[in-house]
Design a binder for these strands. Structure first.
Lengths: 340, 340
DNA sequence: GAAATATTCGCAAACGATTTCGTAGTTTAA
DNA sequence: TTAAACTACGAAATCGTTTGCGAATATTTC
């Protein structure tokens, strides 16, 4: 009694053939209005729910989209998923959500689980460890629609949604310089990531444009252990030629910076100005409030979903075009970069 | 070519019957080691992946668990899901994740989508609007294993995981009193929620024990609009007999309090001491750092998953017992409640 | 050496939906 | 009046697995 009644049982209650009932419920033109009415009312009365697996087996689609993110405890990704869900749920799609925890081995496992049709498409942001992309190539080669956002994979010819990382980093760096910073450090998670490459480019070009020579000692590659990062940044801030400005390419590194500064008895923004890519909900409750570059996370999710729904629901749709779509981020200046 | 080869095709390549191949892959005792070897190596060679829907249809289970939460942009729920995933993924289960956005109508829709076997079980935390629970009763009556955490539904006789809400609120309130608070306000999301009822009880009992009379004007029921809440709290703080302490039963209300205090030119903790249930990652970066009651979110998720896996994987397992399991929260005192 | 027992595998029926094809019965056209 | 066309429905195949049952061969037992 776990599952409700089947189409066959419903049909026998109605003294009709299963095929007729199926057609009636699917509003086929071959069925008279009278029997349609009867079938539908009986189906509602008995609370008939079609078995999704029978349907998936027959139609070879799952009505399910897989979302793969590097971490759940991160507002940016949560907002993106909210955006995706807001669109897909309207079209009857379900969301399988996986976290790689920034672990490329987990990413490979997850991806291999999705090779059998369990999901009709994949929306993902790669882990910071991902450099070998054969597992993603495999998926793509199977013809599974795959779509990247934020941390994209350039080698796969499909649609990617990003923000204007280069420009944002450029503007952010310039803002720091305008606030008087001479030695600006760039904090990153991994050199492999598309976002760090773009943001780093923006950072370097801003330095160059403003006539500041880049110091490779100020390009800091961090780990995933917050405690390690705090120590790393603490050491950086204790060196004789410490930076007077920091551009954190991801939020968690800005937070580690705050912790490091606290331990070092320094002051933001007096000793160090900080700007960060961040989608936290309370940048203005930090002490001092944090100047942020905020990505339009929910919009990214929605745009991903829209393009995917179009591809999945309309018949004979071409493959997802190999293009990069950029949505603008927003720079919000707060105390952490202000002279006082 | 979207999906790989089928069992039947694999069988014909091997000159064996599909049934034999199936049994070989499932390590049946009826198949000789020799043919098992052959089958397995060929399956690997051709990268055979069993169709999950055919299997689900046949076995009447989906290897999928649905998780329903009130909101994604919330560390607590993200951590719980991480905990669930850490266990379930080891057993080959997939996670469908849904957010109700605190909307009971959405909750009903989601629940109704899960009546057809798409998920083998449900783990959920109800929305703050949920008072009528007929939709949940329906699910339960269908025999679908359902398990609540944090915001539980007492009327459904199943297993519930909570934290020691009563005791934590009691201790938190007592802490405020010990710090000199005389008029302590209680901020809640909805009177319907199990967690607010328990936490409110703890709050009231602590007041009584310490000989403080409860003032019903200090029991504030907030909404889901942060801006509204800030105004509400701002007004509260402007009244002549304003509170000198606040116990926020959920994190977002503490944050709204911080915002309201900022706008009112008051000071935490001098004018107002604040303590809150919260799983944010940076309570010590707030200004002042926030005294928190932190729930063991990941452990909750793991315990939920463990009990569920046991129920789902072992044959002839009894229904989930009707019991409430409580894990202790942790009170961490920080500046927001300290006299200085 | 015949009978009993293991061992190993194939046939075919499920699971529950959709869809191709076929066919009564009715209406239209010539 | 008869052929053609249309309407409304049913029978059966199909998707890809798993599994009960039967059967063929090999092995053991008396």
């Amino acid at each position: 009694m776990k599952n409700g009644i089947s189409l066959k049982e419903l049909a026998s209650k109605l003294n009709l053939a299963p095929s007729t009932v199926s057609r009636a419920l699917n509003d086929s033109y071959e069925i008279s209005e009278a029997t349609k009415k009867k079938v539908i009312s009986m189906a509602e009365h008995l609370n008939y729910q079609p078995n999704p697996f029978a349907r998936s087996l027959r139609e070879n689609k799952s009505k399910t989209i897989a979302v793969i993110i590097p971490e759940r405890i991160n507002n940016f990704f949560a907002q993106v998923i909210d955006g995706i869900e807001s669109i897909t749920s309207e079209h009857g799609y379900h969301l399988l959500v996986y976290s790689t925890h920034e672990d490329v081995e987990k990413e490979k496992k997850i991806v291999s689980l999705l090779q059998n049709g369990r999901a009709d498409a994949i929306v993902m942001s790669v882990s910071s460890q991902t450099s070998d992309i054969s597992h993603l190539k495999n998926l793509y080669d199977r013809g599974l629609p795959i779509l990247f956002f934020d941390r994209v994979c350039g080698e796969i010819p499909t649609t990617k949604f990003i923000t204007n990382d280069y420009e944002s980093a450029f503007e952010g760096t310039r803002h720091l310089i305008q606030q008087g910073c001479k030695r600006i450090a760039f904090l990153m998670l991994s050199k492999e990531l598309s976002i760090t490459r773009e943001r780093y480019r923006g950072y370097l070009d801003a330095l160059k444009k403003e006539g500041i020579e880049a110091d490779s000692n100020l390009s800091i590659c961090c780990s995933h252990q917050d405690e390690e990062n705090i120590q790393l940044i603490k050491a950086l801030l204790q060196s004789s030629d410490r930076p007077d400005g920091i551009l954190a390419s991801v939020e968690k590194l800005a937070l580690s910076t705050y912790h490091a500064v606290k331990k070092n008895n320094l002051s933001i923004p007096d000793d160090l100005k900080v700007i960060s890519f961040s989608n936290m909900s309370i940048p203005n409750l930090l002490n001092p409030s944090l100047t942020t570059i905020t990505q339009p996370a929910e919009a990214i999710g929605q745009e991903c979903a829209k393009i995917l729904i179009k591809k999945l629901t309309k018949p004979r749709q071409p493959d997802l075009p190999n293009e990069v779509i950029s949505l603008p981020s927003q720079l919000t200046i707060r105390e952490s970069t202000l002279v006082r």
